[in-house]
């Protein structure tokens, strides 16, 4: 466990010192601040667009961190000799995977926490209340990002560093559209129906982890939804990491 934590710690350091990270952070900050300008253009509740755009920015930039920083660190491991200095230590391949996974996850979550605070603060300036329920949405988004991170590790074990991030992006898009696609093709027979069902069951369903709209409209979310979401996410993450390990342990460097 100590070795996993030691590896996750330097993974975090590598990520947080990356120039790409700061660039992403800067643009994300700009986007969140732009909500202050954008809400002048709506009629009615000014906080709606702050919440909508804030949560969308949080998701988008978390995804970009996975795609860029994750790809930078893991990709470098897989393609250059940088992994030699890790795997030559007395750790097994599972410990390597967990160490990298937890390191990137902690980087991701630190980022999400910072953004959540900024969004809550901006909202507070307008509404003079702290909308804690937004954190429920962030929580489930955090689970979604952990799933995508697991996919990143998985794809990197057998794909080139250029292809792997695109595959993760595809999983993101499919995960957010699979429910709609299934509904659209529900009435049709044959190929389209089978295709949409296959997509729905094979790929993760991020729709169930997306409660932005409900939270923004103050629709009460039962605690069960949150618990099921965590359970769903954990199950998928463990599955993907196991599959990753099965491939990774036989990988030649």
């Amino acid at each position: 466990m100590r070795k996993i934590l030691a590896l996750s710690r330097i993974t975090f350091l590598q990520g947080v010192r990356s120039r790409v990270f700061y660039t992403l952070l800067f643009f994300a900050g700009l986007l969140v601040l732009s909500t202050v300008v954008l809400n002048q253009m709506t009629v009615g509740d000014p906080t709606k667009i702050i919440q909508d755009l804030g949560l969308a920015t949080l998701s988008l930039f978390s995804l970009l961190i996975i795609l860029f920083i994750g790809a930078q660190i893991i990709g470098k491991d897989m393609e250059t000799r940088s992994i030699y200095l890790i795997l030559s230590k007395p750790i097994n391949r599972a410990q390597y995977l967990l160490g990298r996974f937890l390191g990137l996850l902690s980087l991701l979550y630190a980022n999400m926490a910072a953004f959540s605070i900024i969004i809550l603060f901006i909202l507070f300036l307008y509404s003079h209340t702290v909308k804690w329920s937004l954190l429920l949405s962030v929580g489930l988004t955090a689970m979604e990002m952990a799933i995508l991170l697991a996919f990143l590790l998985f794809f990197f074990t057998f794909m080139t560093p250029t292809i792997a991030p695109f595959l993760v992006l595809s999983v993101f898009v499919i995960g957010h559209t699979t429910t709609e696609v299934k509904a659209i093709f529900a009435q049709k027979e044959g190929f389209y129906h089978l295709f949409s069902m296959a997509l729905y069951y094979v790929f993760p369903n991020f729709d169930i982890l997306s409660i932005q709209t409900e939270v923004v409209h103050n629709v009460p979310i039962p605690a069960r939804h949150f618990i099921y979401g965590i359970g769903y996410g954990l199950a998928l993450i463990i599955l993907i990491l196991i599959l990753t390990h099965l491939v990774f342990r036989r990988k030649d460097f």
């Binding site: 100590r2 070795k3 030691a6 590896l7 710690r9 330097i10 350091l13 590598q14 010192r17 990356s18 470098k76 250059t80 000799r81 940088s82 030699y84 200095l85 030559s88 230590k89 007395p90 750790i91």
Partner: peptide, 28 residues
Amino acid sequence: IGFLPENPQFPPALTAQEVLAWTGRMMG
């Protein structure tokens, strides 16, 4: 074992101190 690969690639964002400290922790 102490291992040194050919043309070792250390993480450029880390310092020498951090690399050695991490190595030590990994070696117990």
